[in-house]
């Protein structure tokens, strides 16, 4: 059984002036799965995310969405396809409440007035659907929320707008333990509810806690796309730090090699 990835980038290249930052990058993300994008500082993860979100143009490469070739030249075009990016700095409005944040720019109206009860109910239902239990009222201003709760609201907003792909850039980096655990569970639920989730993280434990696939980048290239259940922590660390599999060619599962190229349809899809 082969499954078409929702998001499929291949052979992506990107230069800033004379400096080539991305070359031959590949990233596939599947519905119902969390794909972790890992790599050392400066490996090119955020640049890749900016390309897929339409913030930066790609110099070369193919951008496939649900199997179709597309061009994404602006964040709006990405949003129209159903791609939501939760940036690390989040861009929630502090002075607005949770409902206002979740519906910002896309408010529901009933006649001329906003349909507050309906928006409120849907906001609450979306948070409950992600098993976010610690938020007391959806009328709380965002400034009164903890870091983990803010992340949850940002993720719920992505959920609410029926996005097909949600990209989270280091959602747990600034959080304490309890909040980190809560966000990891929300990330997992988001995928379990059918989204394709791309999670950027430097924390290998967080990666292994929720990822179905791991895409490892090294010096601007994709060095492996593997199923998370087929690799060890040590192997992934080796990929990140040296761009090679842990025990040399023989110790690396076969499908870890040669993944900069298109190698689709060779793995079983999610169950």
């Amino acid at each position: 059984m082969s499954v078409t990835p929702v998001l499929d980038l291949r052979g992506v290249g990107k230069s800033f002036g004379p400096v080539q930052v991305l070359h031959d990058v590949a990233l596939s993300a599947y519905a119902g799965e969390v794909t972790a994008l890992v790599g050392d500082n400066g490996a090119g993860k955020s640049t890749l995310v900016k390309c897929l979100g339409g913030i930066l143009p790609m110099d070369s490469g193919d951008y496939l969405f649900e199997g179709r070739r597309v061009r994404v030249n602006s964040p709006r075009e990405a949003a129209e396809l159903g791609i939501e990016i939760v940036h690390q700095d989040l861009a929630l409005c502090e002075n607005l409440d949770i409902v206002q944040n979740m519906f910002l720019g896309r408010e529901w109206r009933s006649g001329l007035v906003l349909d507050e009860p309906a928006m409120e109910e849907l906001a609450a239902r979306t948070l409950t659907g992600l098993s976010v239990r610690t938020i007391k009222s959806v009328r709380q201003p965002v400034s009164s929320l903890s870091g983990g709760q803010r992340q949850s609201v940002a993720i719920a907003r992505a959920m609410l707008w029926d996005s097909k792909v949600v990209v989270l850039d280091e959602p747990t980096a600034a959080l304490g333990l309890a909040q980190t655990q809560q966000v990891l569970e929300v990330v997992r639920r988001l995928a379990d509810k059918g989204r394709a989730v791309v999670l950027i993280s430097h924390n290998m434990n967080d990666v292994f806690a929720v990822a179905d696939r791991i895409c490892a980048m090294f010096l601007g290239s994709t060095v492996a796309q593997v199923r998370a259940s087929d690799v060890t922590h040590a192997q992934v660390v080796e990929l990140i730090t040296s761009g090679r599999g842990a025990d040399g060619p023989s110790g690396v599962p076969a499908r870890m090699n040669g993944v900069g190229r298109a190698r689709r349809g060779d793995e079983a899809g999610p169950g």
Partner: peptide, 11 residues
């Protein structure tokens, strides 16, 4: 324990 040691569990 799982969320704190998932790298070891899954390895």
């Amino acid at each position: 324990i799982y969320l704190g040691s998932a790298a070891q569990v899954r390895s």
